[in-house]
Lab assay of single mutants.
Amino acid sequence: MLEGKVKWSNSEKGFGFIEVEGQDDVFVHFSAIQGEGFKTLEEGQAVSFEIVEGNRGPQAANVTKEA
């Protein structure tokens, strides 16, 4: 699992980007967020995730919010 911080997200469009130190930003779709209820990410929020190869390149999977 990698750790990063949410660079920005748009809940209306359903995606955002995660900033990882020393690496390119990672695309995240809201379907990759683990948990119940409305899935949102806040700018600056710490997250853990895996990287998978998506249709348009690397993207985050199994995203969990850190406490």
Results as ranks from 00 to 15, higher is better:
residue 63 V to D: 00
residue 45 Q to P: 00
residue 30 F to K: 05
residue 35 G to C: 10
residue 9 S to N: 05
residue 14 G to M: 12
residue 49 F to W: 00
residue 49 F to I: 01
residue 43 E to D: 08
residue 58 P to D: 04
residue 47 V to C: 04
residue 21 E to G: 07
residue 51 I to R: 05
residue 44 G to C: 07
residue 17 F to T: 02
residue 14 G to Y: 09
residue 16 G to V: 04
residue 52 V to T: 07
residue 8 W to A: 00
residue 50 E to I: 15
residue 7 K to M: 03
residue 39 K to W: 11
residue 45 Q to W: 10
residue 59 Q to F: 09
residue 41 L to V: 06
residue 6 V to G: 02
residue 65 K to P: 11
residue 46 A to E: 09
residue 11 S to M: 13
residue 24 D to A: 14
residue 53 E to F: 15
residue 43 E to M: 14
residue 22 G to K: 04
residue 64 T to A: 08
residue 3 E to C: 15
residue 10 N to A: 06
residue 49 F to N: 00
residue 40 T to L: 10
residue 52 V to W: 08
residue 2 L to K: 10
residue 20 V to Q: 03
residue 33 I to V: 11
residue 39 K to N: 10
residue 41 L to G: 01
residue 64 T to Y: 13
residue 19 E to Q: 13
residue 17 F to P: 00
residue 22 G to F: 05
residue 43 E to K: 15
residue 61 A to D: 05
residue 47 V to A: 03
residue 48 S to L: 13
residue 12 E to T: 12
residue 17 F to L: 04
residue 37 G to S: 08
residue 54 G to R: 06
residue 5 K to E: 03
residue 23 Q to M: 14
residue 34 Q to K: 11
residue 19 E to C: 13
residue 26 V to R: 02
residue 20 V to D: 00
residue 36 E to L: 10
residue 40 T to E: 08
residue 47 V to D: 00
residue 40 T to K: 09
residue 38 F to W: 12
residue 28 V to G: 02
residue 67 A to I: 12
residue 67 A to L: 13
residue 7 K to F: 05
residue 25 D to L: 07
residue 53 E to T: 12
residue 34 Q to D: 07
residue 35 G to I: 06
residue 56 R to K: 10
residue 64 T to C: 09
residue 28 V to H: 03
residue 43 E to W: 14
residue 55 N to I: 14
residue 24 D to Y: 09
residue 13 K to M: 09
residue 44 G to T: 03
residue 45 Q to Y: 06
residue 4 G to K: 01
residue 13 K to I: 06
residue 11 S to L: 14
residue 51 I to Y: 04
residue 45 Q to G: 05
residue 55 N to A: 14
residue 45 Q to F: 05
residue 19 E to A: 14
residue 42 E to K: 13
residue 10 N to G: 03
residue 29 H to D: 05
residue 1 M to A: 09
residue 52 V to I: 12
residue 44 G to A: 04
residue 15 F to W: 14
residue 38 F to Q: 11
residue 8 W to H: 03
residue 34 Q to I: 15
residue 8 W to C: 08
residue 56 R to I: 07
residue 30 F to I: 06
residue 49 F to T: 00
residue 31 S to P: 00
residue 65 K to C: 08
residue 9 S to A: 14
residue 23 Q to N: 08
residue 2 L to N: 06
residue 37 G to E: 09
residue 1 M to H: 10
residue 60 A to Y: 02
residue 41 L to Q: 01
